[in-house]
Amino acid sequence: MSELYQVKALTRSFGKVEALKGVDLAVGKGERLGIVGGSGSGKTTLIRLLAALDVPTGGTIVFDGEPIRAGKPPKGFRSRVQVVFQDPRSSLDPRMKIKDIVGEPLRSQHRRDPKRVEQVLADVGLEPDVLERYPHEFSGGQRQRIAIARALAPEPEVLIADEPVSALDVLVRDQIIELLGSLTKARGLTLLLVSHDLAVVRRLCDSVLIMNEGGIAESGPMAQVMNHPREDYTRRLLAAVPRLKFGPS
């Protein structure tokens, strides 16, 4: 696998808060990396930097051989890399109709493709009647799927997704997992997936990064970290996954 991201000694502080304390990371082309960790451990901060939406306090990020300088991505970056944000509501423009929201990344590539917009909405389980509606007219999980559809519309090389299935019931969630899984296989989509749901990460990713208090507690191939965690923090995390108290017989 050739390297897509090379990250060295990455730090990001907000005043006295050190959100990232020196992260080193390499992501290969077509790799599917899960990012897991405590609330406030720096996951969103890290991926915002990788998406060139924020400027690091220190350290370097190289994307496909070119450095991302002070938040300024290399040419073509914005269409190659798409992001699904943790809070879908605030990432969807309330004044825009769904057809325009999902069509926007296509338009910025000078494509007008209503068929693609409908297709990608269908892929996430939404009917064509959503096209003319506005973001506030949807449920939390529907908004989350609209955000996924928007990111997938321009067929990006890299999908950075921050808790993209947290508002979905298990059945719709499985549909999205399958969709993302098939895209990574068919098109070699590189996936950076932040999730608190270890089952989701386990099913979609081949490697995993466990973050704790702004640093990397542990990382490695999925099976190794899940089955033979080295760090106490990882072990506690795995043990705390809630289990079904009653199940079908």
Partner: peptide
């Protein structure tokens, strides 16, 4: 309404 979707499993246990 979905009070723990953004919480890691350790904090989730604490919150529950």
């Amino acid at each position: 309404d979905e009070p723990t979707t953004a919480l890691d499993v350790l904090v989730q246990a604490e919150v529950l």
